[in-house]
């Protein structure tokens, strides 16, 4: 058996349909929103777990956020991950991509002996997809983003993935260690395993690391480590449409439709 150690970066996000903008303050109102594992990260977990089935080794989960994320992260243990690491410190709050990738990189460095990091394509709340290249840059590793399939050659220490690019696709090969991001919906995430679920939720390993544990420098984390600021929030305005319903039988509707289409060009 190989010792392939894969780390999956998991973000806990509020369910998108339960978040709104408070009209007076223009702040995000997450009060009533339940949280979940960022759905694209489920595809990253599935890829990591399937690599473990093929090559052996182990899968660790790394996440960043407050302690109340712990039970949500136990879902990953119940799916088959071996260990969860939660980077949690008030000082990590307010992080943008630069501070987030720095903090995650410090976590990876502390873990040591990591061969492969797998991330989801993007997060459902931020949707920037910028964590994988940023993380790879801090670690000075190779990267392979937006793949819809991945093969790892443990002996040769290489990863090969296929990704779609505008108007086509490419197959790329990078040396390990590497950071990989996986295209959303490129696989079918497994369900929790009911046999390990009791262990996962009762005694499954969740390790919490704070700033001191990571030896993370204060100027690189949280708000001080974040160049960008949110200067305003707004609910997206949708463009006004005519909203005319065409009535009549199907053939009458279609006749009207053809007239409309001729006008539209």
């Amino acid at each position: 058996m190989s010792n392939l150690h894969t780390v999956v970066c998991v973000k806990i996000v509020p369910k998108p349909e339960e978040v709104s903008v408070a009209p007076e303050t223009l702040r995000l109102d997450r009060a009533g929103a339940r949280s979940e594992i960022n759905p694209p990260d489920m595809n990253a977990m599935e890829l990591a777990l399937s690599l473990k089935e093929r090559h052996g080794g182990r899968v660790s989960i790394i996440s960043m956020g407050p302690p109340f994320f712990t039970p949500l992260l136990r879902v990953a243990l119940a799916m088959g991950a071996d260990h969860v690491y939660l980077l949690s410190d008030r000082a990590f709050g307010g992080a943008d991509t630069l501070a987030t990738t720095y903090t995650l990189a410090k976590g990876i460095e502390k873990l040591g002996a990591v061969d492969l990091i797998i991330c989801g394509e993007e997060s459902s709340d931020g949707a920037t997809g910028q964590v994988p290249p940023g993380l790879a840059e801090w670690l000075e590793w190779a990267q392979l983003t937006m793949v819809n399939s991945l093969d790892v050659d443990v002996e040769q220490r290489q990863a090969r993935g296929r990704r779609e690019i505008p108007g086509g696709h490419e197959i790329l090969e990078v040396p390990l260690p590497a950071v990989v991001s996986v295209q959303t919906a490129s696989n079918e995430p497994r369900f929790m395993d009911y046999k390990i679920k009791p262990w996962a939720f009762a005694e499954g390993r969740v390790t919490v690391w704070n700033q001191a544990d990571l030896a993370a420098e204060a100027e690189y984390i949280g708000t001080p480590g974040s160049p960008t600021i949110v200067s305003g929030l707004d609910e997206a305005a949708s463009r006004e449409r005519k909203r005319i319903i065409l009535e009549g039988s199907v053939s009458e509707q279609v006749e009207q439709l053809v007239a409309v289409m001729e006008q539209a060009g």
Binding site: P14, P16, E17, V19, S20, V21, L28, S124, D125, G126, A127, T128, P227, T228, I229, V230, S231, G232, L233, D234, E235, A236
Partner: peptide, 16 residues
């Protein structure tokens, strides 16, 4: 930028 499936828009800038 839009977040949360496009329902929320945020204005982002950097000063320094």
């Amino acid at each position: 930028v839009s977040g949360f499936g496009g329902g929320v828009l945020a204005l982002i800038e950097m000063a320094h």
